[in-house]
């Protein structure tokens, strides 16, 4: 049964890489079921993240957000700060797709704080880029300028010419 769980996870990832997102969801749902049977929180966390990703490419952004929220809860339970940051970043982007910019900003700020704690300058740069765009969408140009300047400063430091 444990091997079945791992195999469903691998199958889900293969379907995903092939662009077969419905099949990816089916496999990752099975993987999730087996992870729950075993109380395997790390595997459960991976399955929720993979499901969120597949729902993004199916255009089902609300479902993606629900799955990323479960990823975030489990990342916190598992005390994995890098995964927590990644989940916040995914949620920020998903709420941007849903045009809910206030929620997007909440999650991008959470991502920014963790990236700063972890001294992840690339993550911090991406958070600033995302925040600049979200504030622009809200018409808050002062905040947009603040984050655009921070993004520029970090991009120079990390040598990101694009």
């Amino acid at each position: 049964r444990a091997a079945q769980g791992r195999t469903y996870g691998n199958l889900g990832n293969t379907h995903y890489l092939l662009g077969q997102f419905r099949n990816a969801v089916k496999s990752h749902e099975q993987r999730l079921l087996i992870a729950k049977e075993f109380g395997d929180k790390a595997a459960e966390r991976r399955a929720y993240c993979n499901l969120g990703n597949a729902y993004i490419f199916l255009g089902e952004f609300s479902l993606a957000a629900e799955h990323y929220k479960r990823t975030l809860q489990l990342a916190r339970q598992l005390k994995d700060r890098a995964v927590e940051a990644q989940a916040c970043y995914s949620l920020g982007n998903t709420y941007t797709l849903l045009q809910d910019y206030e929620r997007a900003i909440d999650y991008h700020l959470k991502h920014l704080i963790i990236a700063q704690d972890l001294n992840d300058r690339i993550g911090e740069g991406r958070a600033c880029w995302s925040l600049g765009n979200a504030y622009t969408a809200l018409g808050n140009h002062d905040q947009a300028m603040h984050f655009a300047e921070k993004h520029l400063e970090i991009s120079k430091e990390t040598g990101d010419r694009s």
């Binding site: 995914s90 982007n93 995302s130």
Partner: peptide, 26 residues
């Protein structure tokens, strides 16, 4: 409409380009 919106926001577009080949491996 959602896809049109997506193209307008470059940071989201970049995230999705990365996400397309990102998987949580067993």
């Amino acid at each position: 409409t959602q896809r049109m919106h997506l193209i307008q926001i470059d940071s989201v577009q970049r995230w999705m380009e990365d996400l397309r080949y990102m998987t949580e491996v067993e």
